[in-house]
Nucleic acid binder design. Structure first.
Length: 422
RNA sequence: GUGGGUGUGGCCUAAUGGUUAAGGCACCUGGUUGUGGCCCAGGAGAUUGUGGGUUCGAAUCCCACCACUCACCCCA
């Protein structure tokens, strides 16, 4: 038999890691709900064309990172590489434009990108996603930014940096791209090979290059902020005024660009230190043209996606404590056939009454069962032996105090209900 | 897609070309009738990532592949 392994770039989230995940998910959901976001679950796979049109055919995500396959009916499907396209598709498909606007939706789940794994990067990873559809108010941009920021703050993150930029709209961006290209044309011999390629394929990303060589050229490049149209400039100014109003710190980063075509106006990322080269714990922005590009009514939108794996990495790097998950506080040990029958009956009875129970299995010595009770970390061990059962009693041992007492079988449920939560 | 590092029981590690691959953690069983943590004894658990090659002899040297890992690219 071959020995199976998980596919490259995937991971098993083992029981010992679940407290981190549960903590992140529950806080994220609580914050979303309290800001009026409602949950939406969209399919894990969609028609391939949805992503191609939504994200952009020339993007890396679509060009080389999608898990695309043909189903038995010959249809081309793709495992979602992100949430936004699917959520906007659902908005259009279910006519959500007739609901009170804006529509605020959150999602949580796995997404897939065929990429080379490294620290903080996986082929299957999980995102917490927020979208506000149906308003172009900069206050909506603010709301997703603040919510995600509060998520990190609530988790106890330190040393975050909030990067903000505006990449304009279809009216002003092309003009800026021409200015940028004109500038770079003069400096092509001073930049790296990658940048000479970017000059052709994705000029905005020239600003994002990390090569030492290119830094002086980037520093002197014309910033997009000087080339925004009136509407984009106003929007950006208003958003920044709101951030200042709330006293939310951010770094204006005119080099911040996004790899997905649908973004307009606002773009932002939050960076964390200490988790490797993949420092962005979330990315988001405005996408006013997306709904229309997907065949729906013109609908402005703004959203953010946070990578949960990276959040967990930060929590571990910063040694953030998380509460352990609830577990039974009672262990049922037994001796002999009668004891075993009584344990089976009692486990059922206690659990129905809301008392969490570990039940011993198999025929083992009491010592071994007590050892197990200790390792399970329970507060109480119940011993069902011949002696007690003959008198309709059970021995209840307090594992912390180290003392024990006898309790009538009929009173056990009430006894534990009075003392234990789970 | 490109480059670097690493692969020895579930986990951590030893064995520097020479018997049957050693130890710790964890796991299981005992240490006088039915009692956990500490201690003691014992047990189970490995075709040394896979396949080739060199050699009388390979965990160890060489090649290929695979996986993991870090970085580029890109992104969460």
């Amino acid at each position: 038999m071959p020995r199976f392994q998980r596919p490259t770039g995937t991971m098993d989230i083992l029981p010992e890691d679940q407290p981190y995940w549960e903590y992140v998910r529950s806080l994220a959901v609580r914050l979303a709900r309290q800001a009026g976001f409602e949950r939406i679950d969209v399919p894990i796979f969609e028609t391939t064309d949805l992503f191609a049109r939504g994200i952009g055919t020339a993007t890396d995500v679509v060009e080389k990172e999608m898990y695309t396959f043909e189903d038995k009916g010959g249809e081309s499907l793709t495992l979602r590489p992100e949430f936004t396209a699917g959520v906007v598709r659902a908005y259009i498909e279910h006519g959500m434009h007739v609901r009170p606007q804006p529509v605020k939706l959150y999602s949580l789940g796995p997404v897939f990108r065929y990429d080379r794994p490294q620290a903080g990067r996986y082929r299957q990873f999980h995102q917490f996603n927020l979208e506000i559809l149906g308003t172009q108010d900069p206050a909506a941009d603010l709301e997703v930014m603040v919510l995600i920021w509060d998520l990190y703050a609530g988790l106890g993150f330190r040393d975050l940096s909030f990067q903000l930029n505006s990449t304009g709209c279809p009216r002003c961006r092309p003009g800026y791209v021409e200015v940028l290209r004109a500038y770079y044309r003069q400096h092509l011999d001073e930049v790296c090979d990658d940048c000479r390629r970017r000059f052709q394929t994705s000029p905005l990303r020239l600003l994002d290059c990390k090569a030492e060589l290119c830094q002086p050229v980037i520093a002197a490049a014309p910033p997009i902020g000087d080339h925004l149209c009136g509407e984009c400039a106003d929007h950006f100014a208003e958003l920044r005024a709101y951030l200042d109003l709330l006293g939310r710190p951010y770094t204006l980063n005119h080099r911040l660009v996004r790899g997905l075509d649908y973004y307009t106006k606002t773009v932002f990322e939050v960076w964390a230190a200490g988790i490797g080269a993949q420092a962005a714990v979330c990315g988001g922005g405005r996408y006013d043209g997306l709904a229309e590009a997907l065949g729906g009514p013109p609908t402005p939108g703004v959203g953010v996606a946070a990578g949960i794996e990276r959040i967990v990495l930060v929590m571990k790097a910063q040694e953030i404590e998380v509460p352990s998950l609830p577990a039974p506080s009672v262990f049922l040990a037994y001796l002999g056939r009668k004891g075993r029958r009584e344990a089976v009956r009692l486990a059922d009875c206690l659990r129905r009454a809301g008392v969490g129970v570990w039940q011993a299995f198999d025929e083992r010595g009491l010592k071994s069962q007590m050892r197990e009770a200790n390792r399970r970390g329970v507060r109480y061990a119940v011993i069902l032996g011949e002696d007690e059962l003959a008198r309709e009693m059970a021995t209840v041992r307090d594992m912390e105090a180290g003392d024990q007492t006898e309790v009538p079988l009929g009173e056990l449920t009430a006894w534990f209900q009075a003392r234990t939560i789970l």
